[in-house]
Structures are given as structure tokens and as C-alpha cells.
Design a protein around this nucleic acid. Sequence first.
DNA 1: TTGACATCATACAGACCGGTATGTTTTAGA
DNA 2: TCTAAAACATACCGGTCTGTATGATGTCAA
Lengths: 198, 198
Amino acid sequence: MSKNVKTAPAHGGSEVRDRILETASELFYRRGVRAVGVDLVVERSGVAKTSLYRHFGTKNDLVAAFLKREDQDFWGTWDRVSERHSDDALAELDAHCEWIGERVGRRNYRGCPQINTAAEFPEIDHPARIVAETHMREMRRRLNVIAEKLQVARPDRLAGQLAVIINGAFVSMPLFEAGEATELLRHAAHALIAASGD
Amino acid sequence: MSKNVKTAPAHGGSEVRDRILETASELFYRRGVRAVGVDLVVERSGVAKTSLYRHFGTKNDLVAAFLKREDQDFWGTWDRVSERHSDDALAELDAHCEWIGERVGRRNYRGCPQINTAAEFPEIDHPARIVAETHMREMRRRLNVIAEKLQVARPDRLAGQLAVIINGAFVSMPLFEAGEATELLRHAAHALIAASGD
DNA sequence: TTGACATCATACAGACCGGTATGTTTTAGA
DNA sequence: TCTAAAACATACCGGTCTGTATGATGTCAA
């Protein structure tokens, strides 16, 4: 018999909490938040309802945790790509266009979780909206850093435009043919850089 | 006493049907489709539930009608702008950037109904998704016509990029400061045109 | 006047929603 | 081994959801 040790996961949270959050994230992303009831999350994660409500006081809290998790994942990827090009802002931007284009082009890509969830909860003060808006502004901020490294005339406007094409790519997947997104994004980014002095 | 004539509206549908659809459209757009129950639509439109279900067999049918209505409205505006610039493709594109930018910048703008509703209903064969994807492809098609008039090297790619920035603007309103969107869009469009031979 | 039909008001069915209450079993650590 | 916390299973609460059933009231045209 194995010891069946219940190791607490490296990152603080409990194992049960992690299982709930992972299951919920998958379901929320795949089917939409409102379409997924807590009972389904409980059943799919093989956990007691009481446990879910111990770790997340409310469904809304679970949704917020979901978005935070997706956020961390997104910026984690971003940072990993970023680090590989710390000396070349243009190459970094190209690399971002590449992984974002690749991600958008996946056959079951369902869009940016932040944007999708914000669309489900229009109330301006809803936690999901706040997370989503923070996410967008963080992207513009990071793009601003790149734009400044590129020494363009108006880095702020360029950053805004780059954020728009990236957000646009997230919601335009029905428009793309296989593999089209990366090249389209990259070419657009270069065009915007070239014109950023006008 | 007035005659209280029950004139059938010019466009075929009955007056009751119109009232229901108008009320539902407002509510769906403002609060999201899933957040609005048929009972609320019934109450707000001052109509019997039976009447709603006579004109729209199902809530889904009502949702589809809502999206179709929004679609017609959108292309109606588009066409009106288009006609004013039938001889100058660049001026037409500028004009589209202007009204779209203006619309996005409104203080209670809640995004593109097609995109928002598609986010609420991920099932690939859901009527709402189909309408939304048709809407997007129609936009790319129209932008393609403009791109061809502009005689650029790769009109198809340019049309895709323009569609992306427009969709991007629809979902990026938290990023924009007041009145920023139009200039940002227009400048980006020009940049993409200028680079479309590369 | 009569008959067909649209609209009204109301109540209900059956499922699902988020959340709580209760009590038992398992696990971890002193 | 004993204790306290955590996870378990299950049942329930009140509310809301889409959709239907029922029957009264109003309207128009033959």
C-alpha cells in the first residue's frame, strides 16, 4: 500500500482547493460562467459542496479566483517570452505576436477569458469586470514599455494600437484561416511602428 | 375619444411583436442575455407571456431576433455612411473609423452585441454564434471591397487587419480616454494601408 | 350577430440556481 | 492515542428559470 501522502501543493493552497479551481476554470472557460452551476463543479471535481464553500465563500469568489488564475497564466507566458528578448524590443514584440497568434489559432480556442467574462457581467463594479479591465490596462502598460524601447515618436498611441489589435485578435478567431493570425498580427505591428511618427 | 387605431407597423411585424423585441433588445444589450428572464421582458414590455411565446416560440428565437435587429441597425448605419463616399474609398474608411470610434466612446457603450452574445453562448452551433460569425465575415467582406478600391497589394490581408482593429476597438473601450478611439483607429488604418505592399 | 383570433391575466409545472444545515468519516499532528 | 480540523455525503431552503395551460376580454370581418 502506498502512503497516499496528502502533500500540500508547493504554492500554498490546499490540494482540494486546487482541484476545485482547476475544474471550475476549465468549465467556466469552456461553457461560460453563467452556464456552469456550482453543483456541476462539485460533481466534476469529485468534492463535497461544503468543501467548495469552505474555500470559496461564494460563486462570485470562485469566478474571481478563476480570472486571477487565468491572468497569472497569461502574464507567466508573457514574461517567459519577454525574458528571451530583453535586449531587442522588436524581437520581443514579434515573439508576442507569434505565441498570441498561435494561441488564437488553436482549434478550440474560446477567446480571452477576461473579455468573455466581462461580457457576461456588465455591472461596472462586478469583480469580473474589474479584473478584466485591470488585465487590459496591464497589457497596454507593458506594450508601452516596449514602445518606449522602440523609441517611436508617440509610444503611448502605439501601445494603445497594439493593445487593440491583440484584443481584436482574441475576439476575431472566426475570421482567421489556419495559421493566419500570427503573420497578420506581426505585419500589422510593424506597420503601426513604421507609421508611429506620423 | 381617439379611434385608437391598431396600425400594423410599416415593416410587416405586428405592433406587439415590435414592442417585445425592442424591450428585449434593450434589456439583453444592457444586462446580458442570460441575465434577463422572459418574465422581465414580459413585465417591461407590458405584454402577456402568451403573446411573447406566440411571436417567438422560444427564448432562443427571441435572442436570434435581437441579434438580427442589431445587425440590421449596424449595417444600416454603415450603408448610410458608405453612400456618402461612393467615389472615395479612403474617405469612406475614415468616415467608418469616425462613427465607430464615436460609438465606442459613448459613456454607456457596452460593446458589440454580436461579440458579447457569442461570449455568452459558446456552443458552436448556437444560433447566436452563427449570427455573430456571419456578422464578422460580412464586415471583412465589406472591408475587402474598400481595400480593393484602394488598389493595395494584398487587399485580403488588409481587410483582415482592419476587421481586427475594429473588433478590437469594440472590446477595448476601457482602454480609451474620451474621444481617443477615432483618431487611434484612423491612424492605424492609414498605417496598415501604407504598409500593405510589404 | 357570430366566429376566429389576438391579447390579456394568472397559475402552474418541472428543472435548476446559489447557498445552508446536519451529521459522519478521514486525516494530520501533538 | 487522542483531538481538532477538514473533507465527506445528503438533504433541504427559497428563489428563479423556461415554457405551458386555462380561461376571460377585446377586436375585426363576414
